[in-house]
Each structure stands twice: as C-alpha cells, then as structure tokens.
C-alpha cells in the first residue's frame, strides 16, 4: 500500500495548488485514466469542502489530507478545523437535488456518488474528518436520470 500525507495551510495559495499536487500523485499510479479522474475528483471536492465550508477560508486553519492506494481500494481522508456536521446532515446534503440550477452545492453529492463508503467523524484532536473509500477496478459508468 502507498500512503501519502499532507498538511496544508488554509490559504488561498495552498488551495490553488492542492489539486495539482493530488493529480500528479494519482497520475503516477497504473490506475486507468477514467478511474484516476474519479479519484482526483473525490479528493478535490473533499478539499474544497474543507477549505470553503469547514475552515471557511480561514488562512490560520490547516487542512490535512491522507491518500491511500491499496491493491483493491483507494481511501481519502480530509481533515479540517471547522465545527463539522453529523453524518446524517452530510448525507442529507448529498441526497439533496432541490435546486438543479443552483451554481453550487454539488460537491458532497459527487463524493457520495463516486465513493463506496463515506464516513464523517472527529479525530482524537477534534478535527472534522471525512473519509471516502472506493474500490478500484473495472466498473460501469454511473448513470442517474
């Protein structure tokens, strides 16, 4: 298993380069291109959620990211210093399609749809954590009408 750990400052500059860092690491794997894009998207959405909604773009707060590439599973854990949400509220946000034409509010839904399992919890230091697990390998495209 390969495991990567990052601690980013909660700055806009770090936010702007974070996706590029995650992409470069994911692109070093031998995972197929479509699957790599999904993994990038999961981490991107979790980081953006932590930056904008968890830390509320507070530069004094940090964001930690763990990416694990196992033989059969990818795991991403993103931790922020925000107040956090209950798992039920998080799931509720993912299920919401109330306003299809809103310009925001799709990130958590994307994470849930692309993950096999999502957990939210506080770690031993009180940081709010979102953990996404996705089994690797050939699988059909998701279609939802």
């Amino acid at each position: 298993m390969e495991r990567y750990f990052f601690s980013f400052p909660g700055t806009e500059e770090a936010f702007k380069i974070s996706d590029d860092i995650f992409s470069r690491i994911i692109d070093t794997t031998d995972i197929g291109i479509a699957e790599r894009q999904r993994l990038k998207l999961i981490v991107s959405e979790l980081y953006m959620n932590a930056y904008l909604h968890g830390n509320k773009a507070d530069a004094s707060k940090s964001i930690e990211v763990v990416m694990e590439f196992g033989p059969e599973e990818f795991v991403a854990i993103v931790k922020d210093e925000g107040a956090g949400l209950t798992e039920a509220r998080f799931k509720e946000m993912a299920d919401s399609t109330a306003d299809l034409e809103s310009v925001s509010g799709r990130g958590i839904r994307i994470v849930y749809k692309l993950s096999d399992k999502v957990r939210v919890f506080k770690d031993e230091r009180g940081k709010f954590c979102v953990k996404s697990s996705r089994k690797l390998g050939e699988r059909p495209m998701l279609v939802e009408k």
Binding site: L100, M141, E144
Partner: peptide
C-alpha cells in the same frame, strides 16, 4: 469525455 459525462449524470445536470 465519458468520465466527464458521468459527472453530468450523477449531478443530474444532463437533464438541464
């Protein structure tokens, strides 16, 4: 691309 279309589908934006 197929995997970009997938994102439109799972967010239901394919319908708008």
């Amino acid at each position: 691309a197929e995997y970009v279309k997938e994102i439109f589908d799972i967010t239901q934006l394919s319908s708008i």
